[in-house]
Amino acid sequence: MDRLVFLLGTGLARGAVLALFALALVLIWRGARVINFAQGAMAVVSTYVAFEVTSLTGSYWLGLLAALVSGALLGFAVERGVMRFASPRSPLSGVILAIGLVMVLQSTLGIVFGPDYRPVRVPFDDSAVLVGGVPLLSPYDLFVLVTAVVVMVVLAVLFRWTSLGLQMRAAAFAPEVSRLLGVRVSRTVTIGWVLSSVVGSLAALLLVPTSLGLNPHATDSLFVLGFTVAVVGGLDSPVGALVGGVVVGVAMSLVTGYLGAGLVPLAVLALLVLVLLLRPAGLFAAAAARHA
């Protein structure tokens, strides 16, 4: 029982990161109808920036800030400089541009920083806190969870209760009509990319300390898992990304704890296949069409 509680707690923190990353994918899918295969590579660039800033200044928080700022700039640059030129008639052209971007970004990081894994300092204690003798969450897990929840609440408020959020959602549904109503659609698309890139960078920054360390490919598995979460939840649904993230995170944690870490990729793929067979549009796709 103690073990189960511990595994659920860690799974929740892990799932929160996956949910954030999936949310970044959902944001771009909704805003620009592109699956951003470069999300992971963009996020790892920001994480390197954070790493460098933290080693120069000694402050984790300045590094975090640098990751968010560089994520925003990168999102802006990628949309205005690359993705804007994807043909709207071919969904593949955006995907191919994104994959090209992955190669360019990861190779550049490899040239500049080398291929070695660099250990990343954790800003908090990483060992689990005992609550009544039961190991629960580590302070870092708690930090990750709280951060993820705050980001999600901020995004929910932005999309549901602000004019900018309404414009972004309207532009995603019907760009031509939105223009007639005065929405500057190219601006809302850019803002979508900036937001998404910031959220993706944050997810990577939160994940890297709990993984092997920083490396140009440090977010490869995060992308695969985040993509799985987004598909499981429904690419159109932020709520789906949230629930999907928690489901996949907890499932991974339980499989690791009871069956062995080697089975995790298999379990995640089994879940993906199951969802694609039963609800190809994702668990929350119908709900999203009605409530989003």
Partner: peptide, 12 residues
Amino acid sequence: FRGLTVRENVLA
């Protein structure tokens, strides 16, 4: 905007 509510459509 089909996915949005009646109120949100008018707000737009």
